[in-house]
């Protein structure tokens, strides 16, 4: 392919080295500013593309995804509601910023979303992101002018402390009791997590995984349980309660990073 004879330290090699250094140097030192400028140019294109996709079918799929999240949310809320009725009425409500999803997997890798709300709309890095109601799906990773990048809880390598709500049958007096087991969940990508609980824990498919806190939010539901009698732990697999491919809007919990 036009390979010219010459040593390693040819003019072409120095140009290659210079370009590499400029690109990687710019990437390391000014990547936030460059990404911000790039997204200022690209986001109108993405908005236009998302606008073209908004057919009836897309709208119905988005509604179905939202409904699925609400149904998954309902069981966790019901259990929590019973507990909270016996306690002080502390306000756990948060202000939210509605944002449209510009890019989602498989358009971008690393289990991230690109949304159309940024610094100008009051978004901060670390803010929690929900798919509606109390269904949390991730945190804001990077904030640009009018766009932000959301890192989903299911991103590979991410680890979170959560609580596993074990649904128990009603006792003799007809009251549902909730057993809570702390669990460390690790993201596996594509909306799935893995975690371990002590062997003997009565975890079932469909049990809820929530984040601790006054506004304890649903993070996922158990989709599979693997028990090996030789091991002292039971491995459980969970999924985000929303369909990432159909997600059109998300809610960013304002200033939730400080809580």
């Amino acid at each position: 392919m036009g390979q010219k004879p010459g040593g390693w330290f040819s003019f072409r090699f120095f140009v290659f080295l210079l370009v590499c250094l400029v690109l990687l140097g710019a990437g390391i030192f000014w990547h936030r500013a460059i990404e911000s400028a790039a997204w200022a140019l690209i986001s109108p294109l993405q908005r236009a593309r998302v606008g073209f996709d908004s057919s009836e079918n897309q709208r119905l799929r988005a509604e179905l995804a939202s409904t699925t999240a609400l149904i998954a949310d309902r069981n966790a809320l019901y259990q929590e509601n019973i507990e909270l009725k016996n306690r002080l009425n502390r306000n756990g409500a948060t202000a939210v910023i509605l944002a449209g999803v510009l890019m989602r997997p498989p358009a971008i890798p690393y289990d991230t979303l690109l949304v159309d709300a940024g610094e100008a709309e009051g978004v901060h890095a670390g803010d929690f992101v929900s798919a509606g109601g109390t269904t949390r799906i991730g945190t804001v990773g990077e904030v640009y002018g009018h766009t932000s990048r959301v890192i989903l809880f299911s991103s590979a390598g991410q680890t979170y402390d959560a609580l596993l709500h074990l649904a128990s049958p009603a006792n003799d007096s007809g009251v549902n009791t909730t057993q809570v087991v702390p669990v460390s969940m690790q993201g596996q990508g594509s909306g799935s997590f893995v975690g371990q609980v002590p062997a003997g824990t009565s975890v079932k498919v469909g049990d809820s995984i929530v984040f601790p806190g006054i506004a304890s939010a649903l993070a996922g539901s158990v989709s599979s349980v693997v028990f090996d009698p030789k091991q002292s732990f039971t491995t459980l697999y969970a999924r985000l309660p929303v369909d990432l491919l159909s997600l059109r809007f998300i809610e960013i919990e304002k200033d939730s990073y400080a809580r």
Binding site: I28, Y110, I151, S155
Partner: peptide, 15 residues
């Protein structure tokens, strides 16, 4: 630039 900084193991690579 479009993909953003990786999450997890390759976070420190940036690009």
């Amino acid at each position: 630039l479009i993909f953003g900084t990786p999450v997890g193991l390759f976070h420190s690579l940036v690009f």
